[in-house]
C-alpha cells in the first residue's frame, strides 16, 4: 500500500498540495538588507511593542501566520492544523502563538531546518487527505537566541569571523489541498516531492562554526534526493540551503564537486539563504542563521520569484544544527540536519 514513497528517504505528492498563502515579518536589520523590500512587515523596533523579546518573536510569528492565512483568503477558523517551531526552549514562540490563534497545533523542533520540516509535514498532511488547509511556519529572533545559546547581548565579547547572525524574522505559508486551492492566483506553486534528512555529525564542536557543522547534512540530503528522484542538479532552476552562511556554502559547493557534480552547474543552480538575507557591509561575519532566515527568504523572496515565474522549479533545503544549550558544555559535537521540499510552478 505504500504508494507515495520513493527511494530510501523521499516521498512524492500525488494530490498536488498547493501553496496558497505566504506571510512574513522581518526585523529592523533584516529590513535594511538586500531583500528588505520583499517582506510584508519590517519592524522599526525589534521589541515590536512588546515587553520581552520572546513576546516580540511570538508576535512576529503570529503576524506572519495571519498574513499567510489572509493571502490564502482564510481566517484562522478555516485552518485545520498549524505547524511551527522556533529556537527557544519548549518552543515558547510557537506555543504562545498557538495559544492566541486557537488553531489545532503541532509544535516542531528542527532548529533552523524548521521551515522546511513544517512545510514537508504540511504537504504530507494535505496530500494524504488529513487536512484541507495547513499553516506551516518558523521564527527566530536575534536577542532571544543569543541569550539562550550564546552570550548576553550587552556583553563585550568579539564575534569571530565564522560566527553567524541569527535572523530576527518569521515566515509562514498556507498549504492547501489541490481542489481547495484559490484558483485566482496566476501561477500556482505546488509541493511536488520531499526528502526527509538524516542527522549527520561531522564532529565540529565550535558553536561559531555552524555552517561547517551543517554542510555535510545538506550534501547528504541533496545527494539522496537526487538519487531517490533520479534527477540531476539542473532539473531545478534553483537549489537553496537554509543558513549555511558564507563558509558553509563554500564547503557545500566543494563537497558537491567532490561528489562528482558539475562545478559550473553547482555555481549557477545553488545558493544559500544565509548569504542572501544580509549584505556583507552589515557586519554579520559568516552570514545569517536561525529558523527565520530560510522562513523569511523563502516566503518573502523565493516564493515571490516563483509567483512571477522567474523560478519554475525550486528545491528548498533548510538546514539545522541540533545542538542543545548544554550539549557543547558536555563536549558533544554539533549534529546537523537538512530536509528538502521540491516546489514547482504549474
Amino acid at each position: 500500500m505504500i504508494r507515495k514513497k520513493i527511494g530510501r528517504q523521499s516521498v512524492v505528492f500525488t494530490e498536488s498540495p498547493c501553496i496558497t498563502g505566504r506571510g512574513n515579518v522581518a526585523g529592523e536589520k533584516e529590513g535594511k538588507g538586500p531583500l528588505g523590500e520583499c517582506f510584508d512587515i519590517v519592524l522599526k523596533d525589534d521589541m515590536y511593542g512588546e515587553k520581552s523579546w520572546e513576546k516580540a518573536e511570538s508576535k512576529m510569528l503570529k503576524e506572519a501566520m495571519l498574513k499567510a492565512a489572509a493571502r490564502a483568503g482564510k481566517t484562522p477558523e478555516d485552518i485545520d492544523v498549524m505547524l511551527s517551531g522556533d529556537l527557544l526552549n519548549q518552543l515558547m514562540s510557537s506555543s504562545f502563538t498557538a495559544r492566541d490563534t486557537h488553531i489545532p497545533f503541532l509544535g516542531l523542533y528542527g532548529a533552523c531546518s524548521t521551515m522546511t520540516e513544517s512545510l514537508l509535514i504540511a504537504s504530507v498532511l494535505v496530500d494524504g487527505g488529513y487536512a484541507r488547509h495547513v499553516l506551516a511556519g518558523a521564527s527566530s529572533h536575534f536577542c532571544t537566541a543569543e541569550r539562550q545559546f550564546r552570550m548576553p547581548v550587552e556583553h563585550g565579547n568579539q564575534r569571530p569571523p565564522s560566527a553567524q547572525w541569527t535572523a530576527t524574522a518569521a515566515g509562514a505559508v498556507v498549504v492547501s489541498a489541490g481542489e481547495a486551492a484559490n484558483l485566482s492566483l496566476k501561477s500556482r506553486v505546488y509541493a511536488e516531492s520531499a526528502t526527509i534528512g538524516r542527522v549527520i555529525d561531522a564532529g565540529i564542536k565550535d558553536a561559531n562554526q555552524m555552517g561547517a557543522a551543517m554542510a555535510p547534512a545538506a550534501v547528504d540530503t541533496l545527494l539522496n534526493h537526487l538519487e531517490d528522484t533520479g534527477r540531476s542538479l539542473d532539473y531545478y532552476d534553483m537549489v537553496v540551503t537554509g543558513d549555511l552562511g558564507y563558509i558553509g556554502k563554500d564547503i557545500m559547493m566543494d563537497l558537491l564537486a567532490d561528489a562528482g557534480l558539475n562545478k559550473k552547474m553547482i555555481f549557477t543552480h545553488y545558493d544559500d539563504c544565509g548569504t542572501m538575507l544580509f549584505s556583507k557591509s552589515q557586519d554579520v561575519h559568516g552570514g545569517a542563521s536561525g529558523c527565520g532566515c530560510s522562513a523569511a527568504v523563502f516566503t518573502g523572496h523565493l516564493l515571490k520569484q516563483m509567483e512571477q515565474g522567474k523560478i519554475k522549479k525550486l528545491l528548498l533545503m533548510s538546514t539545522g544544527a541540533l545542538l542543545s544549550t548544554i550539549s557543547p558544555f558536555q563536549g558533544e559535537s554539533i549534529p546537523g540536519i537538512a530536509h528538502a521540499v521540491s516546489l514547482e510552478v504549474r
Partner: peptide, 12 residues
C-alpha cells in the same frame, strides 16, 4: 544599573 536600564537590540 541592571534595574534602571534595559538591554538594546544591536542596530545596523
Amino acid at each position: 544599573i541592571s534595574l534602571i536600564f534595559t538591554p538594546k537590540s544591536p542596530k545596523r
